[in-house]
C-alpha cells in the first residue's frame, strides 16, 4: 500500500515538474507549510496515543472487556475504544483475541467502531481544523452510532453463525 502511495506521488510530482517548475515548487512549499502548521498538534497526539497504548495494552483490554458480557461489557468496550484511535494492525488482532476470550460480537462491534470513529486523543488535531463544536458533535454522534453498529452486528451474526 505504501509502495502504491509513494509511486503515485512520485509520478505526479515528476509530471508536475515537467509541466511547470514554478508551480511544483509552490506545491511543495504549500505541502511543507500545511505540515509545519499542524506538526505541534501531531506531536501531542502521538505522545498521548503512545501513553494510552502503553497503559491499555492488549492484556489490559482483554481483562476489561473480555470476560464481561452484557451491557456493562458493551459500555466499557465503547469507552476503551473511544479514548484512542488504535491503528488497525493492533486493533484487529486484539479484537480477535477478545473473541477467543469469550467476548460477544456486540462488544467487539462497539469496540472496533468507536476505535475507528471516536478519538478523544486525536481531538487536538481535529479541533485545530474543525473547531471545538464540530469536533464535539462529530465524536458524540459517532459514539452513539457505534452502539447501533454493535447492535446490528450482534443480531446479524447471531443469525449467520
Amino acid at each position: 500500500m505504501n509502495l502504491i502511495l509513494y509511486s503515485a506521488t512520485a509520478l505526479l510530482l515528476m509530471l508536475s515538474f515537467l509541466k511547470d517548475k514554478e508551480k511544483t515548487k509552490n506545491a511543495l512549499k504549500k505541502a511543507w507549510k500545511a505540515f509545519e502548521n499542524i506538526l505541534p498538534q501531531f506531536l501531542v497526539v502521538i505522545l498521548l496515543v503512545s501513553l494510552l497504548l502503553s497503559v491499555l495494552d492488549r492484556e489490559t483490554i482483554v481483562k476489561i472487556i473480555g470476560k464481561e458480557s452484557g451491557l456493562t461489557g458493551i459500555v466499557l468496550a465503547a469507552v476503551v475504544g473511544s479514548i484512542t484511535l488504535i491503528p488497525g494492525f493492533i486493533a484487529f488482532p486484539t479484537a480477535a483475541l477478545l473473541l477467543e476470550g469469550g467476548a460477544g460480537y456486540m462488544q467487539i462491534g462497539v469496540f472496533i467502531s468507536t476505535l475507528m470513529m471516536v478519538g478523544v486523543a486525536t481531538l487536538p488535531v481535529e479541533i485545530q481544523y474543525f473547531g471545538k463544536r464540530l469536533a464535539r458533535y462529530r465524536n458524540t454522534l459517532a459514539f452513539i452510532f457505534s452502539f447501533i453498529v454493535a447492535y446490528v452486528i450482534g443480531k446479524v451474526l447471531e443469525v449467520v453463525l
Binding site: 502511495l5 506521488t9 508536475s16 506545491a27 505540515f35 501531531f42
Partner: peptide
C-alpha cells in the same frame, strides 16, 4: 512513512 506523500499530494492538488 505515510504522512509526507499525503502532504505532497495535497500540495499538488492545491496548485493544479
Amino acid at each position: 512513512l505515510v504522512i509526507p506523500p499525503i502532504f505532497v499530494l495535497l500540495g499538488l492538488l492545491d496548485v493544479w
